[in-house]
Amino acid sequence: MNNPSEQPVETTEGGGMTRRTAIKALGATLGAAAFAQAIAPLTEWTENMTMDEYLQKHYKELSPFDLGVVMSRLEAETKAETGVDVHIGDYRPQPGVKFGYALNLSICVGCRRCAQACHVENNHDRPSGNSYIRVLEMEKGSLDLAKGRVNYDKPVPSKDKFYMPVQCQQCDKPPCVSVCPVEATWKESDGIVVVDYNWCIGCRYCEAACPYHARRFNWTKPQIPPEEINPDQGYLSNRLRPQGVMEKCTFCLHKTRQGKLPACLEACPTGARVFGNLLDPESEIRWVLKNKRVFVLKEDAGTRPSFFYFFDE
């Protein structure tokens, strides 16, 4: 049963062994050289990486001072790379505020200006035309997403159609947060689900878990012409993202946490979008919830969205 070809190993202990050892050594050297050649792109990749960035702690573990240092470093990096002076702020949730969003499907005309404003405001990758908002052209009389389409190009609104923009629903039970293996994404006290771009490992489990196609991955390093960069940036929102990490709609927290309206709402020509503080009984969002018959998308998924849809009739 023994394979004769295995025999030399046991028998030729003398000169054969040295020749064999020499061949082995040669093979190992060649292998090591080939290995070095194979991983050469990794060395190119690490050239732009600093040890500070690599060892940076999780957002929640950074002291205000450390975070200040990090944000200054990011501003300096942006300046060096693009020549643009940007301001990165760390905007925290306000006490007594929980954000809610409602969208009137009766008056949304599907012009996609919200998606475009999102693209501009949030410093999205230009070549892919990324946006956190996807607008579906839907069949009247049906809420079946399977009948929707996104690449409509005729003048809107079309007869027999209605239009449903979908973005992050800022769920109260966000599946994306529970699946993250490293707690790189979490829900803040004002309801916004955020991502620490410097902590995410890019496994995309959250993208698989989200029922609303709300998450976006940076498949390549986002590219924006310097003159188009929005310099008013938030650390957890629209600052320039690194390659290989997840991002998502933050209700423009760099604006909304300063009391301003989100970019998508300001862009809406019909006023289909209503934004406000769910904890304020006098707010417009509360008026909508009280006086309109609102619904949430995929309620059966059990995600408890903070984003509501309604029709006038």
Binding site: G110, C111, R112, R113, A115, Q116, G129, Y152, P155
Partner: peptide, 10 residues
């Protein structure tokens, strides 16, 4: 009617 802008390019 409006002409929709910013068609998805993905």
């Amino acid at each position: 009617q409006l002409t929709p802008v910013f068609a998805p390019r993905d």
